[in-house]
Write a protein that binds this DNA or RNA. Structure first.
Lengths: 214, 214
DNA sequence: CATAATGTGTTACTAGCGGTAACCCGAGTC
DNA sequence: GACTCGGGTTACCGCTAGTAACACATTATG
């Protein structure tokens, strides 16, 4: 039988794969999104073609790497979302979890968010770009699912939940990106401000006296 | 005096610059964000070094191109924001303006949003990336300014307005990006859903019966 | 035991990118 | 006529993603 042999090889391949991913992780953490295949191969102590045998192309490597971090982050977010507390507290916890993650490892974050899909190569249409739902989309869909599962939104709830999921994720992302660059306030303040926004303070705010209103 | 001569040259240079930008526009509209300097030069009927003499590097060309479209879009948004109507209507008009813009010219939109900053070149740290506030930031700042000018937000209003500005822009962007890819509903529906989100319907919604609440 | 096959790795290459140095040529000027 | 000078080109550099072809070890098989 070659099944045992195949599993043996499979295991070995998986181990190598994990080693390569860890090396890639280190390089990305050091060099950011511009990490080149050469650099990653060098860090792993091997040469490029091996990387390509394992991951197909840069998109494949990106996908594998992204899936890892994405899964980890999504798990954290789910935990925050599932904590036993008031809705507002949960929202704040989720926002804070996300912001803490991007604060702790900005290089990884930038790699995930700005996958440098420019791909100087001649193959742009091939399978790069479609590799794995680029984190933002996945987060949006996940959040949409949670919203749709737990909130009573009346008719058209599914569509509404999806719009909100992507919208909220986008809000979180853009604000986080800006905050990470300028650090204009503490994380807690940012969380509170965003939660206030989601709680309708924009609609509730009064016009400034003398102004034409907004 | 050489002032007349200089203005003469200046005018000529400006004309060329505009021609080049229009050529670049055409290429970007056709090829998307991967438009190469070679392709742009070819479209303009000239060769690369001229482009580099005019714009410094790819970042400079991007900046010039982006500034153009960004200014146009920002003007449209300001108009929508300044229309004489209720706040809710203004917000909806602004959202709709943005979404209509990205719907009308998705290639340009993708070029502006995902500048392909990967920049395979060896110069990543030089001045690329810092060129011009990448649209999202500019929109965020503009919106923040409008919010801060017109709304009475109490203490810390400036910070709050900036967080909201970037957050709302991010929401609009992410939802728009997703919508543009999947087209799950009409533009009007999307606008209404987003406005509802901003109006606090998330906080106001009831828990789904039987569920643990959100 | 020799030989074929198979996985694992390398070197050396292609094609295309952003960016630049060096040259080239026509138009004015002394 | 020599001379600068702005606008243009060719030919190149160093880098990238990706690949073809070759080399070595191990293992299965005659």
């Amino acid at each position: 039988m070659d099944t045992t042999q195949r599993t043996e090889q499979q295991r070995s391949a998986d181990r190598r794969r994990r080693e390569l991913l860890e090396a890639a992780d280190r390089v990305v953490l050091r060099d950011g999104p511009q990490a080149s295949m050469n650099a990653i191969a060098a860090e792993a102590g091997i040469t490029k073609p091996i990387l390509y045998r394992h991951f197909g192309d840069k998109g494949g490597l990106y996908a594998a790497l992204a899936t890892r971090h994405t899964d980890a982050l999504l798990n954290s977010l789910r935990d925050a979302l599932d904590a036993p507390a008031e809705r507002r507290e949960r929202v704040e916890a989720t926002l804070d979890t996300y912001l803490a993650a991007i604060e702790a490892r900005p290089q990884v974050y930038r790699f995930l968010m700005h996958p440098a899909e420019g791909s100087t190569g001649p193959d742009q249409g091939f399978d790069v770009g479609k590799h794995s739902a680029p984190l933002l989309r996945r987060m949006g869909e996940e959040l949409a699912q949670v919203i749709e599962e737990r909130l009573d939104l009346g008719p058209g709830s599914q569509q509404l939940a999806r719009v909100w999921g992507h919208g909220i994720v986008g809000m979180m992302h853009a604000a986080g990106d800006w905050w990470l660059g300028e650090r204009p306030c503490t994380r807690a303040e940012l969380v509170k401000s965003l939660a206030d926004l989601l709680w309708g303070r924009l609609a509730a705010a009064g016009d400034k006296v003398g102004g034409p209103g907004f």
